[in-house]
Amino acid sequence: MSSLFQLAHRKSREGRAQLYEDVWNLFENDGPTLNDAERSIMTDILRRLSHDVEMTVRRRLAERLAANDDAPPELAAMLANDQIEVAYPILMDSKALRDADLIEIIRHRTLQHQLATAMRSGISTEISDALAATGNEDVVVALLENDSATMSSALMEHLVAESQRVDRYQKPLLRRPDLPKDLAKRMYAWVSAALRNYIIENYRFDPSELDDNVVFAMNDAVRETTGEVESNDPSERLVNKLHAAGQLNIGFALKALRQGEVRLFEFALAKLAELRVELLRRLVYEPGGEAFAMACRSLDMDRQVFLTIFDLTRAARGPLTATHRQERNALQAFYADLDQNDALAVVRRWRQDPDFLSALNQLSATD
């Protein structure tokens, strides 16, 4: 240690740099034989000298230490707390860093330090929790994209719930090999059409497997974004009350339509078919009427009742034309040949995906 103290008296920058490297080499080579007091003194010397040593020197030593699996943890922690240019190789690769050191770095260092830690291989559940606790979307995305990161089931559920609010979480979550199937199925309610297809293809379940809770959750989410929760519309309130009392049926919908209560009819039929009223209106008034026929056939509606409703909805929008008669004749045959199970399968898809035309085309392609 005498040579160490001699070096400590050097005043020049070169002398301090030489001292830094000499202490470093001594620590690295003789670390296992040093006692706790010696290790503490040497770590303190290195920390004090860090400000006087050029970054290129510190960076070179950091790269050397990152490749040494048996490096002293004190040195790894010191360099990991340095500027990110120095800390990066340690944060990414050093196995000498302890979880406690990493958690301190996550809590007290920069965003760049957090991102480097999130990309580290094989991080523990405790580190994942600390990274997620930062609340920084960039850090969470980096964590989710790190397939080797271990996450607790509680954290995974939390991030899945957050993905309803933060779209950026959705794709990396669904691409994680450890995402449970039930959580992927839950996400189906709010992700984009492209990601829904990804879920179906990669998690191997059919859209018909989605339970009513998922469908209702998706419809609730849509209503929240369009301001439809707690509607003040008297027609909707009446339909909801009748449905809750078990008194809502096709006969009521037809009666409302006959009496000119078109809005009441729309809410009633939408409720019976478990579709959003905006989508139901599109089905009812779409040219051709095949989509509307699908919705009615899924309810096992009598063909003559369907044709009557078709006539009344068209008449509500103006005088019936020759085009209406042609559509009606075509629909009469279409409805007779339409299997209720096929219609129900399509309607279930509409409940999950408002792009009903693509679902209808898909069904047609299989005929």
Results as ranks from 00 to 15, higher is better:
residue 256 A to Q: 13
residue 185 K to C: 12
residue 95 K to V: 09
residue 291 A to W: 02
residue 123 I to R: 00
residue 125 T to R: 11
residue 332 Q to T: 08
residue 360 L to N: 06
residue 76 A to L: 00
residue 12 S to L: 15
residue 304 Q to R: 13
residue 291 A to K: 06
residue 130 A to G: 00
residue 216 F to A: 15
residue 362 Q to S: 14
residue 219 N to V: 05
residue 108 H to E: 11
residue 270 A to G: 09
residue 320 L to E: 07
residue 66 A to D: 04
residue 79 L to K: 07
residue 143 L to F: 06
residue 313 T to S: 07
residue 284 V to F: 07
residue 34 L to Y: 11
residue 268 A to G: 06
residue 179 L to D: 05
residue 344 L to S: 11
residue 51 H to D: 12
residue 264 L to C: 03
residue 77 A to M: 06
residue 264 L to M: 10
residue 186 R to K: 13
residue 332 Q to H: 08
residue 301 M to H: 09
residue 231 S to D: 07
residue 197 N to I: 03
residue 332 Q to V: 12
residue 82 D to H: 03
residue 103 I to D: 00
residue 13 R to E: 15
residue 226 T to N: 13
residue 206 D to W: 06
residue 47 R to Q: 09
residue 142 A to H: 01
residue 329 N to G: 15
residue 195 L to A: 05
residue 107 R to N: 04
residue 310 F to E: 03
residue 68 N to I: 04
residue 103 I to C: 05
residue 262 V to Q: 14
residue 62 A to E: 08
residue 241 K to T: 14
residue 65 L to W: 04
residue 100 A to C: 01
residue 280 L to P: 09
residue 318 G to C: 11
residue 351 R to F: 10
residue 102 L to Y: 00
residue 193 A to T: 13
residue 134 T to F: 01
residue 199 I to S: 13
residue 50 S to N: 09
residue 42 M to V: 08
residue 9 H to P: 03
residue 196 R to I: 13
residue 313 T to P: 04
residue 73 P to A: 06
residue 344 L to V: 05
residue 136 N to L: 12
residue 357 L to W: 05
residue 50 S to C: 12
residue 142 A to D: 02
